[in-house]
Amino acid sequence: MTRPPYSWPSPDRDYANGDFIPGAADFPPRWRAEAAAFRTGLGARAQPDLDYGPGARQRYDLFLPEGTAQGTVIFIHGGYWLAFGREDFSHLARGPLLRGWAVAMPSYTLTPAARIHEITAEMARLTRLIAATRPGPVTVTGHSAGGHLAARMGCADLALPVARVVPISPLAELGPLMACKMNKDLRLDTAEAATESPARLTLSPGTSAHIQVGANERPAFLWQARTLSEEWACPWTAAPGCHHFDVIDALTDPASALTETLLAV
C-alpha cells in the first residue's frame, strides 16, 4: 500500500479512507460477491428492484424474515454519494433478518447527477413509503455517506415517522468536504452544507439515535461521529479494532453489539 505524501492541512487526506486500510481494493469485490450469494440464498424472501420513484436509481430491494416482521430496517449505502448501489451490500441484511426484521436497501441518484439535498429528498420519499406500507417501527441506518443520509432521516426538519436512527461512520458535518477535491462533483456550498449537516440540525422528537464508528478510523471520522453525538446528546460507540471498511461487517451477525443497538427500539 502506497500512502500519499504527508501535507498539512490536507482535507483530502483526512477523508481518504482507502489509503490507510491494507487491502482496501479487495473490499468492494468481496462485498459484491457476498451480497449476490446472500440474495440467491434468500429465494422468494428477496423482493428485488421495487420502485419508490420515477428515477432510474430510485429502486430498493426488500428482504423479508421468516414469519411476521417485527419492523423494518432501512440500510443506506455509502460511497461519498458518488459510488456503489444497493446490490453491493445485501448481505448486511442478515443480522436484522435473523432477528425477525425486514430490511429495505435503496439505491439513490448519485452525484454529480443529483445534489446532496436532492438525494436526501429521495431517501425521505423512500422512508415515507416504507413507513406507510410495512408493519411495525422503522429504523434507519447507513454507512459513511449513507450514515449522513440515515442521520438526515432522523432530523426534525423532515418530520419522518422514524423510531430510531443508527448512523455508522457518518458524515455529519459537511463543511470540511467543501475543501476536498470531490466537491467538484458534490457541488456543496455554504448554504447546502448548513441545511444538510445533521450536526447543525436537531433530532426529531420521538426518534432515538446511536452513532457507531470504528475505533481505528481516520481522525476526521471519529470527530464526525463524536460531534454528532454531542450535538444530539445521544450515545456513540467506537467499535474496537474496526476501520471504515469493516465496521459494517457486524450487521451480518444477529448477536453483534451493532445489531443489538440497531434494533433497540
Rank of each mutant, 00 (worst) to 15 (best):
F38G: 04
A93M: 04
A150Q: 02
I21P: 00
R187E: 14
E196R: 10
Y60L: 11
P96I: 12
L188H: 06
A255K: 11
A37D: 14
M123D: 00
Q224R: 01
H243I: 02
R3K: 14
S204A: 15
P106Q: 02
T207F: 08
A33T: 14
T111V: 12
W236E: 01
T120R: 12
L201D: 02
P11A: 10
F63W: 02
S208R: 12
E217Q: 03
L228F: 01
L129C: 05
S10P: 04
V140C: 07
V140K: 06
R134D: 07
A16K: 09
R125Y: 00
Q224Y: 01
W81C: 07
P106L: 03
F27Q: 05
L126Y: 00
P205R: 12
R115P: 00
D246V: 02
G136Q: 06
R218T: 10
L64S: 07
H77K: 06
G55L: 06
N183K: 06
E173K: 06
A25H: 11
W236Y: 13
S229T: 01
V73I: 12
P135L: 11
A114S: 07
F84D: 12
S90R: 12
R187I: 05
Q70I: 06
M178Y: 11
A238E: 13
A36N: 09
S7M: 12
A25M: 10
G18V: 02
G55R: 10
Y52H: 06
P135A: 12
A83I: 09
D19K: 13
E192I: 15
G206F: 08
A121P: 03
A215Y: 01
Q224C: 00
D246T: 02
G206C: 08
V165I: 15
R187T: 09
A255D: 15
M178S: 13
L258M: 15
R164C: 06
E118I: 01
T2F: 13
P54R: 12
M182I: 15
M153H: 00
R94P: 03
G100A: 08
P22S: 11
A33F: 11
A193H: 05
S90L: 13
P112R: 04
Q58S: 09
D249K: 14
I21Y: 01
A199M: 07
A69M: 06
P205F: 10
L262Q: 04
D249F: 13
T259H: 07
H143P: 05
F75T: 05
T68E: 14
A156C: 06
Y60P: 01
A238Y: 01
T227I: 03
D12T: 09
M123T: 00
A16W: 14
T133D: 11
R39I: 07
W236I: 00
A194S: 13
I130S: 04
A163M: 06
A36R: 14
R94Y: 08
H243F: 05
A46G: 00
T2E: 14
I116C: 08
K184L: 13
L82I: 05
T109M: 08
C234F: 02
H117E: 15
Y108T: 01
L42P: 05
S197H: 01
